[in-house]
């Protein structure tokens, strides 16, 4: 590697990325490029929602019930001001989707990260240490698994509300959601990582590291972790979608994000009530957005799994 150190330094970061194996495999797969583009567009539009969206759906003063339940603009009864129509509160569906995907993505990403860090750590320790540590962690996981996310969320929400006094509901909602979704998802990571760790720790490269007296913590971090991350990445992408859906369920039950600042899931649930009366657009467009997001992220995850596996390079 040091042979081309001088050339390395001359090359800019961009040039090095363009030269890497991962970039090569990226350019070889059209599906991946489309998925990346879609993911990028969704993330960007969520990030820049205040700039690009035509209305501010969170500004309750600007809403008018006169404009409620308008169909999309291309419809005869549509209003060109509201491209994708309005919901029952008179909010512009397009703007609400942009703002809502912001909240959904934030909850999804943070709770998945929280669950992954917690689950990977506990799984690694349980699998590598074995014995009593393993038994305790995995029994806790079993107990955890028997509680649905909703129950945990209700419990945490109730506790938090009792502590904060229900005044800061809007601010605490996000944290409560992230913690309750994270706490109900970590078991999956822990189990997957534990079972892969059980296989890896008996392999001879781990024994070689133990032989020279490397600290167990360093063996887990340097040797075992990179070799058990493959399945974790796939779970994380699938879980991102699941977390968004769980968030929707919780929000619907009134435990999650308040209805004044709807997330994608909240919109789908609200729109669901109007589906049979013909107002399909309230639920269809946020649903399409969610489906596109989940599909694109999953496809990216699949590609990443293959690209990071040195055996398939």
């Amino acid at each position: 590697m040091s042979m081309n150190k001088e050339t390395d330094e001359k090359m800019s970061v961009i040039a090095r990325v363009l030269d890497s194996d991962i970039w090569y495999s990226f350019t070889r797969s059209k599906v991946t490029m489309v998925a990346a583009l879609v993911t990028f567009l969704i993330f960007a539009s969520a990030l820049f929602a205040p700039i690009i969206s035509p209305h501010d759906p969170f500004d309750l003063a600007s809403l008018s019930l006169m404009d409620s339940l308008l169909p999309p603009a291309w419809n005869a009864e549509g209003d060109p001001n509201y491209l994708l129509g309005t919901d029952d509160q008179g909010r512009d569906v397009l703007s609400t989707i942009l703002y809502g995907s912001r909240i959904s993505l934030a909850v999804g990403l943070v709770s998945v990260a929280f669950a992954a860090v917690l689950g990977i750590t506990l799984g690694l320790v349980a699998g590598y240490m074995g014995g009593r540590v393993d038994a305790i962690i995995m029994r806790v996981a079993d107990v955890q698994l028997s509680f649905p996310a909703i129950l945990i969320a209700l419990l945490i929400d109730g506790t938090v509300n009792a502590l904060v006094g229900g005044m800061d509901r809007e601010r605490s909602a996000f944290t409560v959601l992230v913690i309750s979704i994270g706490l109900s998802f970590w078991v999956q990571y822990a189990r997957t990582v534990r079972s892969s760790t059980l296989v890896e720790r008996n392999k001879e490269y781990v024994q070689a590291a133990r032989l020279i007296g490397l600290h167990p913590f360093l063996i887990m971090l340097r040797h075992v972790l990179p070799n058990v991350m493959g399945p974790v990445l796939v779970i994380a992408t699938i879980n991102l979608a699941l977390a968004v859906i769980t968030e929707a369920t919780l929000s619907f039950l009134g435990v999650g994000i308040p209805g004044t600042q709807p997330s994608l899931g909240t919109m789908i649930r609200t729109g669901n009530d109007f589906l049979f009366s013909g107002e399909w657009w309230i639920t269809f467009f946020p649903g399409a957005m969610l489906a596109a997001l989940v599909l694109a992220v999953n496809l990216l995850g699949d590609w990443l799994r293959d690209a990071l596996n040195p055996k398939l390079r």
């Binding site: 392999k203 001879e204 490269y205 024994q207 070689a208 990179p226 070799n227 040195p310 055996k311």
Partner: peptide
Amino acid sequence: FQDPFASLNP
């Protein structure tokens, strides 16, 4: 070690 396929971190 015995197995050269398992003794090197892949």
